[in-house]
Design a protein around this nucleic acid. Sequence first.
DNA 1: CTTAAAATAGGAATAATTCCTATTTTTATA
DNA 2: TATAAAAATAGGAATTATTCCTATTTTAAG
Lengths: 131, 131
Amino acid sequence: MKNYSKQREDVLNAIKELKNHPTAEEIYSKVKENNSTASKGTVYRNLKNLVIDKKIIKISKIEGPDRYDLVNYPHYHAICASCGKVFDFVYDFDVANIRKSLKKQIGENIDINDFSLQILCDKCKNKLQKN
Amino acid sequence: MKNYSKQREDVLNAIKELKNHPTAEEIYSKVKENNSTASKGTVYRNLKNLVIDKKIIKISKIEGPDRYDLVNYPHYHAICASCGKVFDFVYDFDVANIRKSLKKQIGENIDINDFSLQILCDKCKNKLQKN
DNA sequence: CTTAAAATAGGAATAATTCCTATTTTTATA
DNA sequence: TATAAAAATAGGAATTATTCCTATTTTAAG
């Protein structure tokens, strides 16, 4: 996992071009549009490798397939639990201290890849309040 | 969404019984095992409703289908992106300030429901590095 | 009651993801 | 460099996960 293959670069570049949390399918389409030779299996394999490598994160929405986004600190995600809308935001979390606290509590030297705030956006909050 | 249907209760109970972040398929199996009438469509619909209702969270892993787990306040979750293991932890996030910052950035008075840290646990970190 | 709205069963249809094999590319090292 | 082993890929089939459809039932509202 030291040097990236041409295809892995193609996958990463496609995500950069697409900007808004694309699905694997959308990434595959963009990759083909860019005349990459990458097959579907290759796209999925490299998405997985890029997550492991902390270049991207995988975002689960309440509906539909999972999505991907670049890791771009300090840049976190607030995801609406209802509609799945993803809001990017920046905040100066004390990551080192949180990591230390986690180690104390769960006894592992875990890597923090992302903060995902689970939220309710205004639109959904209003809609749900009617129930 | 005030009162739960029998089937929605069945889905929630299945997750309680299964304990370890089951997939929708595993939940469906357990539900049938418990002689619920719930169909597959009903299970998926209610999983979605339970997430909206903050009774459960949806967990995305690097591989395999999404999983579900109970929400257990008042602590937060650190979720391994690879194996899906959920670590409970407590931390004194300045929720009011984060909320204020979010409002400034995205212009919405969002409710923060949960913090989910996306992590790689020690075990997975070691295993995945071999690839 | 009566009607409208919401939820469900059953399973087909669709979409997402993984897997397989032959081939190519990269890496290590002699 | 040559060469053997390891890793990555193409192409697409196979599998799995998820959504969707229609008729029916249940719940909520007036």
